[in-house]
Design a protein around this nucleic acid. Sequence first.
DNA 1: CTGCGTAATGTTTACGTAAACATCAGCTCG
DNA 2: CGAGCTGATGTTTACGTAAACATTACGCAG
Lengths: 340, 340
Amino acid sequence: MSRPKATRVSMADVAKLAGVSSQTVSRVANGHPSVVGSTRQQVLAAMKELHYRPNSAARALKSGQFRTIGVILFTLSSTGNSRTLEAIATHAALQGYAITLIPVAVPTQDSVLGAFTRLGELAVDGVIVIMEVHLLDAATVTLPPNVQVVVVDSDAGDRYAVVDTDQADGARQAVEHLLELGHRTVWHVTGPEESFAGERRTQAWRDTLTAAGREIPPPLRGDWSAESGYRAGLALADEPGCTAVFAANDQMALGVLRAMHERGRAVPADVSVVGFDDIPDATSFIPPLTTVHQDFAEVGRRCVEGILRQIDSGETGPGTALVPTRLQVRSSTAPPPPGR
Amino acid sequence: MSRPKATRVSMADVAKLAGVSSQTVSRVANGHPSVVGSTRQQVLAAMKELHYRPNSAARALKSGQFRTIGVILFTLSSTGNSRTLEAIATHAALQGYAITLIPVAVPTQDSVLGAFTRLGELAVDGVIVIMEVHLLDAATVTLPPNVQVVVVDSDAGDRYAVVDTDQADGARQAVEHLLELGHRTVWHVTGPEESFAGERRTQAWRDTLTAAGREIPPPLRGDWSAESGYRAGLALADEPGCTAVFAANDQMALGVLRAMHERGRAVPADVSVVGFDDIPDATSFIPPLTTVHQDFAEVGRRCVEGILRQIDSGETGPGTALVPTRLQVRSSTAPPPPGR
DNA sequence: CTGCGTAATGTTTACGTAAACATCAGCTCG
DNA sequence: CGAGCTGATGTTTACGTAAACATTACGCAG
């Protein structure tokens, strides 16, 4: 480590140039009222001349606040995570907060624990966790006491504040849409086992079919990837009774579409397909995909609001906030072929 | 703002419990060699008992270094940006650096300037800019002198260190692949005008055709979205001479595929399509897409390496580093139909 | 016209860390 | 056997900011 030491301009420098005390400079910088106009002008001029910028480290040391929110996440490769992160960053910036990213390479308990441990040394006032959350269980103890937490995609509503898309209602809308079109039942390609979001979508699919008194076909396990949707789709294409498929996300729906296409089963004439997420590309699938729209921006906004409320009040606020979903009907769904 | 004041544990507290001076605690914390084993053990035990965590604000104030890298970006909605960001975050974490996100909501010069201004107050040692960079021109002056910069996707190699995918070579590979298959010429759906990456891909497409002595069809302007690719695709489907399309990214290629499908032009039998990026979904397009693979992880890694080198040396290092691309051949390309 | 309140500004101090310097004990070497 | 050195630890100080307290000066009420 060399010492470039670009001799940062401090309040003392500004004070000297303006002929006032450094405390007056501080008052001007923080908009304190009891500074007379002429003095304020002088200080502002000096600041400008020296290109003064406050030192956030010193400020944080003094105030104990960093005006920074940490975001722990496992991956950015899913549309949902990156869109949520973007919304978080945007809203945090509006409130004058910065975002520090804490990637967890492998979603093991050890690495999550490691992330939480490092957290104590990180300059953050609060943390938003975007992750399958049963990995958090053991991490609770390590949480620094003065750091607030908001969790996305979790069932930890009893311990932390949780913000999530209303997965169950979205899945219900998807399944009911297909039943209303006249399908006897709806087949399902699930997300990975360890995903709470996926679990909840699957549960709601099952519940909706049960409530309607329909038969429940065996679900096919996917892992969110288009590839896994394709494999499931190949299996479904060979099921003669399958006329409607609910894929737990749009990527897997894309895979199902390809499988149906390759096996010569027309969508939506022979088989209807519904996805979940409403990624931008979904409008250009073949055919354009009917899917459940998630409002990631709203999720991000509520996360920031929640964490800031906690930081300001100093109180953790367990409880779950659900962001509603909306079914976006496009061209991949239709009534079943006659005779079914 | 209330004062929760969870009375953080400081070195002094640890020192008192361990019966040593705070300086000795500091030495243990930083792995300084001249602390005898028994003392070290005592201090470590005290740290553990009190759950001591170093205060990064104080450390930063003392050292002038934050061990943090700022990343300025316009949007996370493009695959490239979010994948690059992820790689940056991962590699920075490996080096003990945190990432601070600085989103710029609207890509105007004003807001970029604003981001750079706020930067001076932010606790960062260096900045990575992921953005169309002609917006940076006016921002140069505002850059705090002790903050290093690395830029992605830019032609600013004369002023900043630039890391980028070898756009030109990737586009060349795509076009040559199509020519080698026997196509007379290659049509092109471009990215948005203001994108350097897009510009470079278009230029290389033109150059490659020129070098091969082929006719250069008028390029169709897109905006990276699948929707825009679809519109371009509809136009291309009506061009009887069009047997090969190079789309400047995979999303637009998806749109082209849909347009061809709707107009009854088979891919690849009637028309070949090549994309750019190799997003994960590309394997599940109908048909699986031949595309230029970008190594975003490598781009991110080199960004971090570059910025850390600059931080350590205290010197800016202009110059451009190019990350190679690779053509990933799948099923969307084939020789042109006979008679063309 | 004198004393007191108040508004404007200055001075002191503390935040937690770590570099620089100071001290002390034990050991080597002449 | 003692001077000097070395290694372990303690003490002082500074980083830049802002709260708390101190000091002016001025105006107004008694």
